[in-house]
Design a protein around this nucleic acid. Structure first.
Length: 493
RNA sequence: GCCCCUAUCGUCUAGCGGCCUAGGACACCGCCCUUUCAAGGCGGAGAUCACGGGUUCGAAUCCCGUUGGGGGCACCA
């Protein structure tokens, strides 16, 4: 299917930090826009004065920026169809509400919130559909006002009865609803702000939106929107309802599932390209085997036809794997840029700052292919930067060796190492590899003891590279410390 | 309660009537490589295609029903 003159929008409400699912919707809109050479509009739906949160808009834009999702119209960039904050468009909605009032497609309702709440409770008690019971629907304005219990009316849409609304969803194909279950919904609230339904329809029309790609939770309000377009004499956009992202328990992903805000993942050491790649695969796929996509490949291949219908559980394990792939494929220079700030802030306070950049540039390549997230870095890099490391005597002694044998092996290594002229990996290996058979032990045993002596860990990057980067002084001191520890064990140890 | 959507390995998914004794990936388990850890290579286990009826020479693929899951039913979006 050809899609021409594509104008899509990402229309979040600034009620908090955007979640993964929310940004996935933004990503799909972006991919669709870029694939078709269209535009992405960002529109802030701040029509709920009570729930609007300070800083939320910044968090939204920051999330988009982190993933490098750029928008053609909206906050900060402007555009020909602004303003892009709904709270600045109140007069526009008012104008359309009047139109509907005049044509009889809408009416004033003088029922108070309390009364409606009571009615709803009663309805659900009787196991009925909790919709507006239409008290003000079929009486004159004066009668409604007279029998009402509030002076400030809301504007309600008069939903036609006995209609079947059918539409062709781009993802779900044919969907239909019976208008009788809809209930007359509110268009303009008592505070003069529009509801989502009203603002959404008016703005999508005015902003010439061609496709509405939104989460599945909106599917059942689509008939309302279609009816509104009809009453306004406007042509509706095409709709596509995206599958929802779920938590491990299969309910909509939310805070109680742990990291749910997109930006949480930045803090957890994920890189944006991996995040974009993974998110694209939440509900979309190209074929039966490709899953690593560069951004431009995503744009090139993205198609609504290949978006799935079922909710997808967000699997951080697979995301981690993918992040590891991106980290390993990253040019060393980029990796250093990404890694340095984390090291700078998360290494123990005892490590002097700022870090020695040249030294870090030698350390980081040894670590790059050993982590899945940047957050793992400080922990495995610590021994490179710390002056003092602690040894676990038990770990120091290799399998099938005893304490004395370990001490002599370490001493022998130190003695041989001492006169070594150049402290590079090849020289170190040339010297140490033959030493094991001389001592009557296996290379694995010698190297193992040295590794723990020099790094304090049983798992570390390749020994000779590690020793070379650490430098002669640190290595010799740590070997000596290990020998001392084994020779004079402390009671506490 | 009502409405809508949906249903393939634990998870993400391929499959759009015969290429399927169901393919890939993550995770898991072995083996190889190897000084450890990673990475990589090879192999394994893992889905009676939710269930029951149809349609058809033939169904994971089409239709109906059941069940499960999700979403919605506000002066929230």
């Amino acid at each position: 299917m050809e899609d021409k003159d594509v104008r899509v929008r990402y229309a979040p409400s600034p009620t908090g930090i955007p979640h993964v699912g929310n940004i996935r919707t933004a990503l799909f809109n972006w991919l669709f826009a870029r694939h078709n050479g269209g535009s992405l509009i960002v529109r802030i739906e701040d029509t709920d004065q009570a729930r609007t949160q300070e800083g939320a808009i910044q968090a939204i834009l920051e999330s988009l920026r982190w993933l490098d999702i750029d928008w053609d119209e909206g906050p900060e960039v402007g555009g020909d169809f602004g303003p892009y904050l709904q709270s600045e468009r109140l007069d526009i909605y008012d104008r359309y509400a009047r139109k509907l009032l005049e044509s009889g497609a809408a009416y004033h309702c003088y029922c108070s919130a309390e009364r409606l709440k009571a009615a709803r409770d009663e309805q659900s008690r009787l196991k009925q559909m909790p919709v507006y019971n239409g008290r003000c629907r079929d009486v004159s304005e004066d009668e409604a006002k007279a029998s009402g219990d509030t002076d400030i009316p809301v504007v309600r849409f008069r939903v036609p009865t006995g209609r079947t609304i059918t539409f062709n969803d781009r993802i779900r194909e044919k969907v239909s609803f019976d208008s009788d279950i809809l209930g007359d919904f509110v268009l303009i609230k008592t505070d003069k702000f529009p509801t989502y339904h009203m603002a959404n329809v008016v703005d999508d029309h005015l902003m010439k939106i061609s496709h509405v790609l939104r989460a599945e939770e909106w599917l059942s309000s689509t008939p309302r929107h279609l009816l509104l377009y009809e009453a306004l004499g406007m042509i509706p956009p095409q709709y596509g309802h995206l599958p929802i992202i779920l938590g491990p328990d299969r309910s909509k992903l939310s805070k109680r599932h742990g990291a749910a805000a997109l930006l949480d993942y930045r803090g957890l050491g994920f890189v944006p390209d991996a995040m974009v790649n993974y998110l694209a695969l939440m509900g979309w796929s190209l074929d039966d085997h490709t899953e690593l996509f560069a951004r431009n490949e995503l744009v090139e291949h993205f198609a609504l036809e290949r978006v799935g219908k079922t909710g997808a559980i967000f699997d951080i394990t697979k995301l981690s794997w993918m992040n590891g792939v991106y980290l390993r494929d990253m040019p060393a220079g980029r990796f250093v840029e990404d890694a340095l700030p984390i090291l700078e802030s998360k290494l123990p306070p005892a490590v002097p700052r700022p870090l020695d950049r040249a030294y870090a540039e030698r350390v980081l390549p040894l670590l790059q292919e050993r982590i899945k997230t940047l957050e793992e870095l400080p922990e495995i890099a610590a021994f490179f930067f710390a002056d003092e490391i602690s040894h676990d005597p038990a770990a120091l002694i290799p399998k099938k060796m005893d304490r004395d044998a370990t001490i002599s092996a370490l001493n022998a290594a130190a003695t041989n190492l001492d006169p070594l002229e150049s402290w590079d990996p090849d020289s170190l290996e040339a010297l140490l590899r033959p030493l094991a058979p001389d001592l009557g032990i296996k290379t694995g045993q010698l190297f193992g003891a040295l590794r723990v002596a020099v790094t304090g860990r049983t798992a570390a990057p390749p020994l000779f590279d590690t020793m070379s980067v650490l430098g002669r002084e640190r290595c010799m001191k740590r070997i000596q410390d290990a020998v001392n520890l084994l020779t004079y064990p402390t009671d506490a140890g």
